[in-house]
Simulated scan of single mutants.
Amino acid sequence: MTTSEKLYPVNGVELCAETFGDPADPAVLLIHGGSASMLWWDSGLCRKLADRGLYVIRYDQRDTGRSTSYPIGRPGYSMRDLAADAVGLLDALGIDQAHVVGQSMSGGTALVIGVDHPSRVASLTFVSTSTEADDLPPPSESMPHLDPPDFADPASVEEYVVRSIEAEYLGHFDEAAARDLVRRDMARARDFEASLTNHYAMSFDDPVNGGFGDLTMPVLVVHGGLDPVFPLAHGEAIRDAVPNGRLVVIPDVGHGVPAARWDDLVDAIADHTASR
C-alpha cells in the first residue's frame, strides 16, 4: 500500500481510500463503476480537480482494490450497502458534506446517497450512467461480445479487461495506458476475480425515499456523445428526470473519459461545485 492510501473501518468492512488536495477545501467523493477500483479515477485527474480547489477522495468499493472482498459470486451486500459505505467513509474522514460523483454503474450508488442521505450531499454529478428506464436504447451494436477470461491465467484476464476498455473508449483507446492500469489493478486487488464478478451479482435495490425526481441538490450529468454502453439518450433521460438538471456532453468520447478529455470533465465538475 502506498503511504498516501489508508484503510478505514466502515460498516464492518475495510475501505481503502486516498485523498488529494487541501482538507479545508470542499470535498468531492469519486465513486467509479462496476468492478473498477479507485485507480480508474486516475491520479492525474484527481490532481487536476485538487488544483481547482477541491479536496478529492477516491476509494476502493467493496470487492475492488484493497477493500474487503467476498467469495466469488456471493457478495454480502447490495447497492444500498455501497451507498452507506460512501457515507460511512465521509464519517471516517470527518466530512459532513461532499460533492458526490458517480460513474457508470455507480450512478445508482450516487442516486441512493442523494435520495436517502441528502444532508450529506452538496451536489451530485452523474458520469456516463443511466436511469435504466425500459424505453432507453440498448448498448451499441459496436460493443463486441467478449468471452469470459480464464481466471487461472493472468494474461487471459489482462487481455479481457484491456479489450473491454478498448470497446468503451472507442478512438481514444491508449493500449499502453490501459495495460498499465489493468496490471496495477490486478496487482493490488485482494481477489481480482471477485472484482470482475461480484458487483454484477449484488442486489440492485432502489433508494428508500424516492428516485431521480426527489433529488434536492444541484445535479450535473456528464455524458460522452458516442457512449456505446449507455447511448446519449441515457444521459438526456437523467437530465430530464431530475429537478433543474444540467447536461454537459463531451461530443467525441465513449463510455470512459480519456486523458485527452480530462479537462472537459474537470471543468464541468469544478464549475458545478464552485458555488455550492
Rank of each mutant, 00 (worst) to 15 (best):
R179V: 11
M217P: 04
E166L: 12
S203Q: 11
Y169S: 15
M202R: 12
A187G: 13
M217N: 01
A201L: 09
M186G: 12
H199Y: 10
P218D: 02
A178T: 09
D214N: 03
V208K: 04
F204D: 08
D185W: 07
G213E: 03
A178G: 09
P207R: 00
H172L: 02
M186Y: 10
F212V: 12
P207N: 04
P218R: 00
D191A: 14
L196Q: 11
E168W: 09
T197I: 08
R183Y: 09
D191C: 15
G171Q: 13
D205H: 05
D205Q: 05
F192P: 09
P207A: 02
R188Y: 03
N198E: 06
D206R: 07
R190K: 14
R179A: 05
V182E: 03
D214Y: 00
R183V: 14
A176T: 12
R190T: 15
G213T: 04
D191H: 13
F212K: 10
A178I: 12
D174G: 04
V219F: 01
D174K: 06
D205A: 02
R179H: 08
F192H: 12
V219K: 03
A201F: 13
R184P: 08
L170V: 15
P218Y: 00
G211S: 09
R188L: 14
D214K: 01
D206T: 14
A176Y: 04
G211Q: 01
D205C: 08
D214E: 07
S203W: 10
S203D: 13
R183P: 08
R188W: 00
A189I: 14
D214S: 06
D180K: 10
Y200T: 10
L170W: 01
E166S: 07
G213K: 07
R188I: 15
P218S: 02
Y200I: 06
Y169Q: 14
M186L: 15
V182A: 02
I165R: 08
G213M: 05
N198F: 11
N209S: 13
A201T: 14
S203P: 06
D185T: 15
D180L: 13
A167R: 09
P207E: 03
R179Y: 11
S203T: 15
D206S: 14
R179M: 10
R179I: 13
F173M: 05
T197N: 05
E175V: 07
A187V: 15
G210T: 00
D180R: 12
G213N: 00
D180P: 02
A178E: 08
N209M: 04
M202P: 08
M186T: 14
L196G: 11
G211V: 00
V182P: 06
T216L: 02
D205W: 00
Y200P: 05
L181Y: 13
P207S: 06
G210L: 03
L170N: 05
P207F: 01
Y200R: 04
R188F: 03
F192C: 11
R179L: 11
R183C: 10
M202Q: 08
L181N: 09
P207Q: 01
S203H: 11
A167D: 05
A194E: 06
M202W: 08
H172F: 04
E193I: 14
E175W: 02
D180C: 10
F173I: 10
A176L: 09
L181H: 10
